[in-house]
Simulated assay, not measured.
Amino acid sequence: MNISTIQEIVKKDGIVFLTYGGFLSQALISGMTEALEKEAKQSDLNMGDANNIFIIFIELAQNMMNYSKTKSKDNNDLASEGLIVVGKDNELNYYIHSQNVVGKEDKEKIEPKLKEILTLDKEEIKRMYRELRKSGKNTHGKGGGIGFYEIAKRCDKINYEFIEINENKFYFHFKAEVATK
């Protein structure tokens, strides 16, 4: 990607506060969250909106860490790799985009949950989230899912797309939008 591609994104989608593409670690996510906190303070973003953005960012980054199916260059191990962008559009709303490679099995676990979430209103999302938290189902160790309910609770709109790379791998694009109050 060249810089003109990023300039086009900024022109179309607004200001970009944070862009990262590459290998993810918990320490890196923590550092990026600190950078977002500083940006929120400088932008006089209210605490509720700032927390929503931070939590969505963390959930998406952790999903990329846990479910990426990209082979590392030096061996055949899977690498926690992805792309994440946090920015503000021209209407002063925030967006968090993520992209990573997932396997067919993970796509088949994730997609039905996202389809269900898109059919629910905010109260139904909150109810499902509480039920999942109490039951212990859909934790990261059991195939993911509760994090998407957490994201849906905190944002105003989500979009996602799976693009086939081959029969066993897919690009997973996800976008959450937070309208500022």
Rank of each mutant, 00 (worst) to 15 (best):
N2D: 15
I3M: 11
I6Q: 10
I6F: 11
I6C: 00
Q7M: 14
V10S: 15
K11R: 14
D13T: 01
I15Y: 05
V16S: 04
Y20Q: 07
G21A: 15
G21V: 12
L24S: 00
S25V: 10
S25M: 06
Q26N: 08
A27N: 13
L28D: 07
L28H: 07
S30R: 11
M32P: 01
M32D: 08
T33R: 13
E34Q: 14
E34M: 10
E34L: 14
A35Y: 06
A35N: 12
A35F: 06
L36N: 09
L36R: 06
L36S: 10
K38S: 10
K41H: 09
D44Y: 12
D44Q: 14
L45R: 06
M47R: 13
M47Q: 14
M47I: 14
N51T: 12
N51P: 00
I56S: 02
F57N: 01
I58F: 05
Q62R: 14
N63I: 08
N63S: 11
M64C: 05
M64G: 08
N66E: 14
Y67M: 04
K69G: 06
K73W: 08
K73S: 14
N75C: 10
L78K: 09
A79P: 00
S80I: 03
E81M: 14
G82F: 04
I84P: 07
V85E: 08
V85D: 04
G87A: 07
G87R: 05
E91L: 12
E91Y: 12
Y94R: 01
Y94L: 06
I96W: 01
I96P: 01
Q99E: 09
N100S: 12
V101Q: 15
V102E: 03
E105W: 03
K107T: 04
K107V: 09
K109W: 00
E111Q: 11
E111K: 10
P112G: 02
K113W: 00
L114W: 08
L114E: 05
K115M: 11
E116M: 15
I117Y: 01
L118D: 09
L120P: 05
L120T: 08
K122Y: 07
E123S: 09
E124Y: 01
I125Q: 08
M128S: 14
Y129W: 13
S135A: 14
S135L: 11
G136P: 06
K137E: 09
K142F: 11
G144V: 07
G144A: 09
G145S: 06
E150K: 11
I151N: 05
I151V: 15
R154Q: 07
C155L: 02
D156K: 05
D156Y: 02
K157D: 03
I158M: 13
N159R: 09
F162Y: 12
I165Q: 12
N166W: 04
N168W: 02
N168C: 00
N168R: 10
K169I: 01
F170L: 05
Y171D: 10
Y171R: 04
F172Q: 02
F172P: 06
K175Y: 00
A176E: 02
E177M: 11
T180P: 00
T180I: 09
